[in-house]
Design a protein around this nucleic acid. Structure first.
Lengths: 142, 142
DNA sequence: TATAATCCCTCAAGTAACTTGAGGTTCAAG
DNA sequence: CTTGAACCTCAAGTTACTTGAGGGATTATA
C-alpha cells in the first residue's frame, strides 16, 4: 500500500528505470530507502517530486534549472518571483528557437520542392541543389 | 594565395578551429595536408565542403545524415531523390518539433501570467503554481 | 636579430542527460 | 522449488562538440 518499487515509480511518472537511478545519483531525487534485499522503496511524495521534475524537463528546463526551481519551491532561496523570471527567460529562449525552426522548416520545404521540380530523380552528381549548398553563390537561397 | 591555414578556414566558414580538427578526426573532412612545421593547409574546395557541412548542420541534420548527403552528392550511393526523401523526413520531424515547442511556449506564457496574477512576489513555499506542477490534480493545466 | 604575440599542434578529459551492457541478486508466481 | 521478471551495481557508450594542459611554429615588432 504505502511502499512501491522503482518499476512502479517509473510507470507512474513515465520515466525509465535507469533514469530514476541516474536522478538519484545526481541528487535530483533523494536517496531512496531500501528494503531487506537492497531494492529501492518509494512513496507518493516521490511520485509528486518526479512528476514535477519530468514536467519541468518537458518544459525544456535543464537539470540545473529544475534544481533551482525546486530550491525556490522549498523556499531555500529567494522568492516565487524568481521562478517566474526563470520561466520568463526560458520563454524568450523558446520563442527564439521556434522562430529559428520555422525558418528551417521553410528552407527544408523549399529544398524538397526544388528537388521535386528540378532533380526529377536524376543521379546524385547532377543534383544542382545539393551542390549549391556548398558553393559561395546563391548564399541567400537557404 | 592557394593555401591557407586552419584559422582562415574557420573564419571563412564560421566554424571553430577545434571543430574542424574534430571533423577531420571523424573523417567528415579529408585529412588535410601539412606544411613543413606540421600545420594544416587548406584549399578552396575545403571551404566549399565545410560550408556544405555547416549548412546541413544548421538545417538540423545529424553528422551521420550529412555523411549520407555527401555520399549521395558524390553519387556513391543512390539517387538525388534520396536526398529529397531525407530532407522530407527531416522536415516532418522539424514540423513536429515546432508544434511541440509552441505548446511549450503557450504553457510557459501561462505559467508566467499565473505567477504575475497569483504569486505577487510571495515567498517560495506559498507558490501554488509550482506546487501544482508536481501534484496529481489539475494535470490538464500544463 | 631577438623576442614577444599569435597561431598552431596533440592528446586527454569534460559536457548534457541519459542509455546500454555485463554480470549477478531478489522476489513473486506456479 | 524453480523459473522468470524485476531488481542491483558498475562501467562504458552516445552526440557533437568544447576546454585544458603543455608545447612547437610563424609572424610582427623593436
Amino acid at each position: 500500500m504505502s511502499g512501491f518499487k522503482i518499476g512502479t515509480l517509473a510507470k507512474q511518472t513515465g520515466t525509465s528505470v535507469p533514469t530514476i537511478r541516474y536522478y538519484e545519483e545526481i541528487r535530483l531525487l533523494r536517496r531512496a530507502e531500501r528494503q531487506a534485499g537492497g531494492q529501492r522503496v518509494y512513496k507518493v511524495e516521490d511520485v509528486n517530486r518526479l512528476t514535477l521534475i519530468r514536467r519541468c524537463r518537458d518544459f525544456g528546463f535543464s537539470i540545473e534549472q529544475v534544481r533551482l526551481l525546486i530550491a525556490i519551491m522549498q523556499g531555500q532561496t529567494r522568492s516565487c518571483m524568481d521562478a517566474r523570471d526563470l520561466a520568463q527567460q526560458h520563454l524568450t529562449a523558446v520563442r527564439n528557437k521556434v522562430r529559428e525552426m520555422r525558418v528551417l522548416e521553410r528552407n527544408l520545404a523549399a529544398f524538397v520542392a526544388a528537388c521535386d521540380s528540378a532533380c526529377a530523380g536524376g543521379p546524385g552528381p547532377d543534383c544542382v541543389i545539393l551542390e549549391d549548398l556548398g558553393g559561395a553563390t546563391k548564399k541567400g537561397m537557404f
